[in-house]
């Protein structure tokens, strides 16, 4: 499993959401796509899922160009609200399960219990935290080759974050899957990561192995990011 962006640019109007970005992601690893809001993280994930298309360059999964059909192999968690309000939790899961052949209903059931979601509840009546959990259930229940999470922790309290991180670690299949987490909350996920990619203003400004950073430079990912960020101009994290 290899996911790659080759010299990819994506423009919205005159502003470049991504500017000649090249990245490669391999199975068995957890990557952090780190950067402030609006840095191009979300666009990168959407490109890899085939929800958005590059203006320049190529996005490939296992050597083939990414299209809409790629979502067959890529599980994507949006930062948006992805569900239909009128659905119940169970209906939401049934719908996602019907669309993706790799959906594992038992895993979903287990995750529902672990994250304490009531399957009979309407999506409309769920709290923000519970919607976040439901999104996670639908994403992690898939045995997809790549799992892409866009701000999975936003709006969730620390207890929920912990349980989500644990579910992530528990259910990830390191022999076949790659996990990419896009977030601006670096501290929350630092200990999860194999590699960190720093992105700002649509450009990759650094990419490092997390443990090497500590071993060789005595830096945590957050410290490293702050150094880079000040070098490349402002940009709050």
């Amino acid at each position: 499993m290899v996911l790659e962006l080759k010299n990819v640019s994506k423009f919205y109007g005159k502003t470049a959401a991504l500017n000649k970005v090249s990245l490669t992601f391999e199975k068995g690893k957890i990557y952090g796509l780190l950067g402030p809001n609006g840095s191009g993280k979300s666009t990168s994930l959407k490109l890899m899922t085939g929800l958005v298309f590059p203006d320049e360059g190529a996005v490939k999964l296992n050597g083939t160009l990414v299209t809409r059909k790629t979502s067959e192999k890529v599980a994507y968690l949006t930062e948006l609200d992805m569900f239909y309000d009128v659905f119940t939790v169970q209906e939401t899961i049934d719908y996602v399960a019907s669309q993706f052949a790799d959906f594992n209903k038992e895993k979903a059931l287990q995750l529902l219990q672990e994250l304490k979601l009531d399957p009979t509840k309407k999506v409309r009546s769920l709290s923000k935290g519970n919607r976040g959990r439901l999104k996670l259930v639908t994403t992690l229940s898939r045995n997809a080759e790549a799992i892409l999470l866009d701000e999975p922790f936003s709006g969730l309290d620390p207890m929920v974050r912990d349980s989500i991180v644990q579910s992530l670690l528990k259910y990830l299949d390191f022999d076949h899957q790659v996990l990419i987490i896009a977030t601006h909350e670096i501290n929350e996920i630092e200990s999860l990561l194999d590699e960190a990619v720093a992105i700002q203003y649509g450009k990759v400004i650094g990419q490092e192995k997390v443990e090497s950073l500590r071993e060789e430079r005595g830096l945590s990912v957050l410290q490293w990011f702050k150094q880079l960020s000040s070098k490349y101009g402002e940009g709050e994290i």
Binding site: R68, K69, T70, S71, E72
Partner: peptide, 10 residues
């Protein structure tokens, strides 16, 4: 959200 497009269906 346009997320109905997040499916392998044509």
């Amino acid at each position: 959200t346009q997320l109905w497009l997040y499916t392998p269906r044509r």
